[in-house]
Design a protein around this nucleic acid. Structure first.
Length: 1017
RNA sequence: GCCGGGGUGGCGGAAUGGUAGACGCGGCGGUCUCAAAAACCGCUGGCUCAUAAGGUCGUGCGGGUUCGAGUCCCGCCCCCGGCACCA
C-alpha cells in the first residue's frame, strides 16, 4: 500500500473507475430512506469554477456520500441554469450564439466538478434551455395562468438603458441595475406578472416550518413586509369648507377672489363669444370636433398634414395661445367636457367647452374662475354639484391609535386625486401642485428614496377631514409618501412618526402628543414606541395603545369609515423580459387583441434558431423582429401573433428540483409518484445571495403546484444551508492624479504583477470575493494539479465553519496534504496485520487494555464524524479524524508481532472504520487505501461504520476539582463513581486541602464524571 | 435607522452553563542529513518566576444572575451581511 499521499499516482484512476461503473447513478432500492442533496442551479460562466464554487459542491458531496454509505437512496443531481441575460449579453459580446456558448461552459463546469470528484448523477442532467425542459416551464406558466396567477397588465417598469431590458425590483441595487450598473429609468409597457402576492401570507407563515438560516428567513419576512392596520377614508375639502353646500362654495369663491368683478366682466365677454359660435355650429358636430382635436393634440404621433385645414386652424388657436402648452389645455378641456357632459345636455357641453376655448385664448389663469362665473350666470344651482362632488382619499395606517394626533395629511405626488384637487383650488395652489409634481417626476428613484435627503412637500390648498375629530387638517403633497405602497396617502402624526415629525418641523405644522409612556407624562417627541397610553384623544384618552387600536378599528368598521387591513410590501413577480435568450411565453394574440394560451399539445413554443438576437433599441424583444416566430394561427385558425416576451431566468430555476426527480419524462413534467418519493430536498446548499428571489419564487411555485395536487409538499427545501464565500487576497493602490474611483471602491484594482512591481507601501491588500474580473481566482484545476483533489477537498472542509467566509491561501492545502500522507502512512503500517474478518475475531478474543483503547478512539471518532457531517460541521469532522489519528499514533506498537489477536482485530477495525469515515472527504484516498487492503468494492458502496456507545465510553475520567469555582486540581478516577465517592476524592486532594485551609466547607457541587466544586469560606 | 449574524492566542478556529484555546497553520527547540527540503519528536495565551511547582490575569466593554458564565440576562462598542422615507 502506498505510504504517502501522491495524488498523481491514483486520483485520476479512481475517477475514471467511478465513471466507468456508473457509481453515482441514483439508486432507488425499495425500503430504503431517501436523501435529496442539491446544490443551487448554477449558471455556467466562461470563467469556469473557482475554488470558491467548490466550497459549495464539496460539502454537499460529502454529506451525500455519507448518506449513501448509511443506506439511503441518495439523489444528488446537477444541471445548468442556461437562460438569462448574462449568457445572452456575453454571447452578444463574443458574437456567439448563446446556446453553443452555454454548452461549452457547462461542459467545462462538468469537467471541473468531476475533477474534484463530486459524485453527481450525470445521467439526470439537463439545461434549462433544453426544449425538453422548458416545454414544461411553459406548461407551468399555463397552469399559473389557468389558476389566475399569471396576468398581463400595463406597468411602470424599471428599464435598464444599458441592457435594454426590464428589471425586477430585486435586480436593482440602490437605483442602479444590479448587473450593468446603469441608472434605472421608468417605462410604461404591458408586462406579464405572476401573482405571488396572493401567496404572501402563506409564504410568510410557512417559514416557521422549515430549517433555514434565521437570517435568510428574516430577509424573506422583511421582503414580504406584512403590516396590520386600518385603511380608512378621509374627506377632502377646500378652504376648510364643505363644498357640497353651494352657498358656501360661492361665498368662498367671492371671498377668495377680490377681483371677482373684473373676472366676471372677462367671463361674460367670453360667454358672449361662445354663444356666437354656438349659433353658427351644429352642436354634435362641434363636440365631436373638439374631442378629436383634443385627442390629436395629446398624441405624440400628431401629424398636421393629415388633417383638414379648419381642424388645424382650431387646433392652432388652442395650442398657440400666449404661453400655452397644448397638454395643459388638453387636460383642462378634457376634464371640463367630461364633467359637464355627464350632467348636462350636449348643447351646454359644447357651450362650456367653446367658452373655455375662448377663455383660454385670453387668460389661462382665470379660466377656472370664469367657469365658476359661467355657472353662476346660468342660474342653474344644481350645476354646482358638478363642482362639489365630494372628494376623498384612503389612508392606511398601522397606528390608528394615534388618529387624534393627525395634524396634516400627505398624498403621493402621483396620487390620482391630486388632479381633481388641483382643478378646484385657487390658481396659486394649482401652480404649486404642478410645480411639485413636475419636480417629483423628474427625480430619479434613487434620489427620491435617498434616506438622508431632506423632506420636501407642497401644500395643496385643500384640507382633509379627520374622521375621529372632524377637524380639518392641511393636505400636502410629499414625495416621501410612495404611490406604490398602501394607498398613496397617509394620515400624518408628527408626534409619533419620525418622518412626519421631520416634515412638520420643516413646514411649521403643529405637533400634538397623543401617546405617552405613562398617563401623566408627556413624551419627548417624536415618540414612536407602541407601549403607552392615549392622551389628548377625546373619548379614547387613557386607553392603552393596543386597546385603543382595537376600539378605533371597531368604530371605523361599524361606521363604514374604514376596515382592518393587512398590507404587504411585496409586489407581484414581473416575469417579462424583452429578450431573446429565455423561455418563450406560450401566448398568442388574435387580430382583435384577445389572447389565448398555446394548447398543451403544441408545447413547447421553441425559441427560433437565429443569427441575430440583439435587442432592439426601442426595447422590443428581438423575437418581435422574426416573422416566422411571431406569425402563427390561433385555436380557431385565424391569424395570430405570438407573445414575444420571454420569461426571466428565475422561472426556470423555480422548479428544476422537481424535474431532477424524473428528468426525461416525455408525457408530463414529472411523475407525481417520483416527486413524492424524493421531495422535499433534504439539504439545499448555495450562496446567500439568492436569499430572496430564487428561494421565494421556488417556494411560491411549489405551493401553487401543491394546491394543484401535483406535488405532495408545501415547501421545496426542508433544510437550507449557505456556504461562506471564498475570498482572494487582492491588491489595490491609491488613485493617481486625474484618476477617479468607482462608486464603492476605495482603491484601484491592480494585477498581481503590478503589485509586485510597486513599492510595498503603495499596495493595499484586501480580501475580496474571488471573481475573474478581480483577477484573484484560484481554479480547482490549479489546486488539483499542485496539491491533489482530496487535498483540496479536505482543505475546503477543514478551513473554516461551513457558513463562514474564508481567506484563501494555497499553502493551507499543504496541511491537508500532510494529513492525508500521515493517514496513508499509518494505513500502510497497519496493512500488514490487517484482518478482513476482524469483526468476528474481535468478539472471540479477550480484550486487552490496548485493544480497548484502540476501539475507544475508533468509536468516538465514528460517532463524532457522523454527527458533525450531519450538522454541516465539516471542520470538526476533519479535526475529529486528525485527533483520532494522533491518538492512534500514540498507541502504535513498536513491533507488530507482539500484538494479541484482539489487538490486531482492534487495529483492523480502526483502519477499516477510518478509511470509510474518511471516504466522504477524501474519496480517492479512501478508495486507494481500501483497495490496498484487498477490497474490490468502492468505499461508497460500503456501509458507514457503526459507533457503539459502550465502546466509546471512557473507563477513566478526569475530574476537575474547583474551590469556589476556581480550578485547583484535576484528578483521574475510574468512570462511573458515585457523587459521594467523587466528593471524597476531591476533598482528599492535597491541592484542594491547601486552598481550604482555615475555611469551612459550605457546600459541595458534583457533576458526575466531570467536576467537583467545593464551596467554602 | 431597522433586521440578522458575529467579536475567543501571532493566524483559521474548538468548546450540551462545568478543566477556555480541541484540531490545524505559523513559530521555537530537537532527531535524521555533508547540507537543505521532506518527515518525525517536543514546546508554544499573557504576566509573574533563574527554573519548576505555584500564583495571577485572560473569550470586544460595563454591569447582573449562578457554587460556577465564552455560553444566560441588562446596557454599550465594533465588524460583516441584508433592508431602507413601507405609513
Amino acid at each position: 500500500m502506498l505510504d504517502r499521499y501522491l495524488p498523481d499516482e491514483f486520483e485520476s484512476k479512481w475517477r475514471a473507475r467511478w465513471q466507468d461503473t456508473d457509481l453515482f447513478l441514483t439508486q432507488e432500492i425499495e425500503g430504503r430512506p431517501k436523501f435529496y442533496a442539491l446544490d443551487f442551479f448554477p449558471y455556467p460562466s466562461g470563467a469556469g469554477l473557482s475554488v470558491g464554487h467548490c466550497r459549495n459542491y464539496i460539502p454537499t458531496d460529502a454529506i451525500a456520500r455519507m448518506k449513501r454509505m448509511q443506506g439511503y437512496n441518495v439523489l444528488h443531481p446537477m444541471g445548468f441554469d442556461a437562460f438569462g441575460l448574462p449568457a445572452e449579453n456575453e454571447a452578444i459580446k463574443r458574437k456567439r450564439h448563446p446556446a453553443g456558448m452555454i454548452d461549452d461552459y457547462a461542459a467545462n463546469y462538468r469537467r471541473q466538478m468531476d475533477l474534484v470528484g463530486i459524485g453527481y448523477d450525470w445521467s439526470r442532467t439537463f439545461k434549462s434551455s433544453d426544449p425538453d425542459y422548458y416545454r414544461w416551464t411553459q406548461w407551468i406558466f399555463k397552469l399559473l395562468f389557468d389558476r389566475g396567477l399569471a396576468e398581463r397588465r400595463m406597468a411602470t417598469v424599471n428599464w435598464d438603458p444599458v441592457e435594454k431590458t426590464v428589471l425586477a425590483d430585486e435586480e436593482i441595487i440602490g437605483g442602479r441595475a444590479e448587473r450593468s450598473g446603469a441608472l434605472v429609468e421608468k417605462k410604461e409597457i404591458p408586462q406579464w406578472f405572476f401573482c405571488i402576492t396572493k401567496y404572501a401570507q402563506r409564504l410568510l407563515d410557512d417559514l416557521d416550518t422549515i430549517d433555514w438560516p434565521e437570517g435568510i428567513k428574516q430577509m424573506q419576512r422583511n421582503w414580504i413586509g406584512r403590516s396590520e392596520g386600518v385603511e380608512f377614508s378621509l374627506d377632502v375639502v377646500i378652504q376648510g369648507e364643505d363644498l357640497a353646500n353651494p352657498a358656501h362654495a360661492v361665498e368662498d369663491l367671492r371671498a377668495s377672489f377680490p377681483d371677482l368683478e373684473r373676472a366676471q366682466d372677462q367671463a361674460l365677454e367670453s360667454i358672449r363669444a361662445a354663444k356666437t359660435c354656438l349659433e353658427t355650429l351644429n352642436a354634435t358636430e362641434a363636440l365631436a370636433r373638439c374631442q378629436t382635436l383634443l385627442v390629436l393634440a395629446a398624441s405624440p404621433i400628431f401629424e398636421p398634414a393629415a388633417f383638414a385645414s379648419d381642424d388645424l386652424a382650431t387646433l392652432r388657436t388652442i395650442a398657440e395661445g400666449p404661453q400655452r402648452r397644448a397638454d395643459a389645455i388638453e387636460d383642462l378641456l378634457e376634464e371640463l367636457i367630461d364633467e359637464v357632459a355627464q350632467f348636462k345636455g350636449e348643447a351646454a357641453t359644447v357651450r362650456a367647452a367653446l367658452m373655455h376655448l375662448e377663455a383660454a385664448g385670453d387668460n389661462f389663469d382665470t379660466i377656472e374662475d370664469a367657469f365658476e362665473d359661467f355657472i353662476d350666470a346660468t342660474d342653474e344651482p344644481d350645476e354646482l354639484t358638478v363642482r362639489a362632488k365630494p372628494m376623498s382619499f384612503r389612508a392606511f395606517t398601522t397606528r390608528i391609535d394615534t388618529i387624534y394626533g393627525v395634524t396634516f395629511c400627505v398624498l403621493a405626488p402621483e396620487h390620482p386625486l391630486v388632479k381633481t384637487i388641483a382643478k378646484r383650488v385657487r390658481p396659486r395652489h394649482r401652480a404649486v401642485i404642478a410645480q411639485y409634481q413636475k419636480q417629483a417626476r423628474e427625480l430619479s428613484e434613487t434620489d427620491r428614496t435617498a434616506v438622508d435627503r431632506p423632506k420636501t412637500g407642497a401644500f395643496t390648498g385643500a384640507y382633509a377631514v379627520n374622521p375621529a375629530t372632524g377637524k380639518h387638517v392641511p393636505l400636502y403633497l410629499a414625495d416621501y409618501v410612495l404611490m406604490n405602497y398602501g394607498t398613496g396617502g397617509i394620515m400624518a402624526v408628527p408626534g409619533h412618526d419620525e418622518r412626519d415629525f421631520e416634515f412638520a418641523h420643516k413646514y411649521e405644522l403643529p405637533v400634538v402628543p397623543v401617546i405617552a409612556p405613562a398617563i401623566d407624562s408627556i413624551p419627548e417627541l417624536p415618540y414612536a414606541a407602541t407601549d403607552g397610553y392615549l392622551i389628548n384623544s377625546g373619548s379614547h384618552t387613557g386607553l392603552k395603545v393596543e386597546e385603543a387600536k382595537a376600539r378605533l378599528a371597531d368604530w371605523m368598521e361599524a361606521e363604514g369609515i374604514g376596515v382592518r387591513k393587512v398590507n404587504f410590501k411585496m409586489r407581484d413577480w414581473l416575469i417579462s423580459r424583452q429578450r431573446y435568450w429565455g423561455c418563450p411565453i406560450p401566448v398568442v394574440y388574435n387580430s382583435e387583441g384577445g389572447m389565448e394560451l398555446v394548447p398543451e399539445d403544441q408545447l413547447p413554443v421553441t425559441l427560433p434558431d437565429v443569427e441575430h438576437y440583439e435587442p432592439g433599441d426601442d426595447g422590443s424583444s428581438p423575437l418581435a423582429g422574426i416573422p416566422e416566430f411571431v406569425n402563427t394561427t390561433t385555436k380557431d385558425g385565424t391569424l395570430g401573433q405570438r407573445e414575444t416576451d420571454t420569461m426571466g431566468g428565475f422561472a426556470c430555476s423555480s422548479w428544476y428540483f422537481l424535474r431532477f426527480c424524473d428528468p426525461f419524462n416525455q408525457d408530463q413534467a414529472w411523475d407525481p409518484e417520483k416527486v413524492a418519493k424524493w421531495m422535499p430536498v433534504d439539504c439545499y446548499v448555495g450562496g446567500a445571495e439568492h436569499a430572496v428571489m430564487h428561494l421565494l419564487y421556488a417556494r411560491f411555485w411549489t405551493k401553487v403546484l401543491y394546491d394543484a395536487g401535483l406535488v405532495p409538499v408545501n415547501e421545496p427545501f426542508q433544510r437550507l444551508i449557505n456556504q461562506g464565500q471564498v475570498l482572494g487576497r487582492t491588491p489595490y493602490r491609491q488613485p493617481r492624479e486625474g484618476e477617479r474611483l468607482e462608486v464603492g471602491e476605495d482603491g484601484i484594482l491592480i494585477s498581481y504583477d503590478e503589485a509586485a512591481k510597486l513599492p510595498e507601501s503603495d499596495v493595499t491588500w484586501k480580501w475580496v470575493r474571488m471573481s475573474k474580473s478581480k483577477g484573484n481566482i484560484v481554479t480547482p484545476d490549479e489546486a488539483v494539479a499542485e496539491y491533489g483533489a482530496d487535498a483540496l477537498r479536505v482543505f475546503e472542509l477543514f478551513v473554516a465553519p461551513f457558513e463562514q467566509n474564508v481567506q484563501w491561501s494555497n499553502e493551507g492545502m499543504q496541511g491537508s496534504v500532510r494529513f492525508l500522507s500521515r493517514v496513508m502512512k499509518w494505513g500502510a503500517e497497519l496493512s500488514s496485520i490487517y484482518q478482513p474478518d476482524w469483526a468476528l475475531m474481535i468478539d472471540q478474543h479477550e480484550a486487552t487494555d490496548l485493544s480497548r483503547q484502540i476501539r475507544r478512539v475508533t468509536h468516538q471518532m465514528v460517532a463524532k464524524c457522523g454527527h458533525d457531517i450531519e450538522r454541516f460541521a465539516f471542520n470538526t469532522y476533519i479535526s475529529a479524524m486528525m485527533t483520532a489519528l494522533n491518538k492512534y499514533g500514540d498507541l502504535m506498537p513498536k513491533d507488530a508481532s507482539t500484538l494479541t489477536e484482539a489487538e490486531q482485530a482492534a487495529w483492523s477495525e480502526a483502519l477499516s472504520a477510518f478509511i470509510r469515515v474518511l471516504a466522504p472527504a477524501a474519496p480517492h484516498t479512501a478508495d486507494e487505501m481500501w483497495s490496498g487492503l484487498g477490497y474490490e468494492e468502492f468505499t461508497l458502496n460500503e456501509s458507514w461504520p457503526e459507533a457503539i456507545e459502550a465502546l466509546a465510553a471512557e473507563d477513566e475520567v478526569t475530574v476537575a476539582v474547583q474551590v469556589n469555582g476556581k480550578l485547583r486540581d484535576t484528578i483521574t478516577l475510574p468512570a462511573g463513581l458515585g457523587n459521594e465517592e467523587l466528593e471524597q476524592h476531591a476533598l482528599a486532594s492535597e491541592k484542594v486541602k491547601a486552598h481550604l485551609d482555615g475555611k469551612t466547607v459550605r457546600k459541595v457541587i458534583v457533576i458526575p464524571g466531570k467536576l467537583v466544586n467545593v464551596v467554602a469560606n
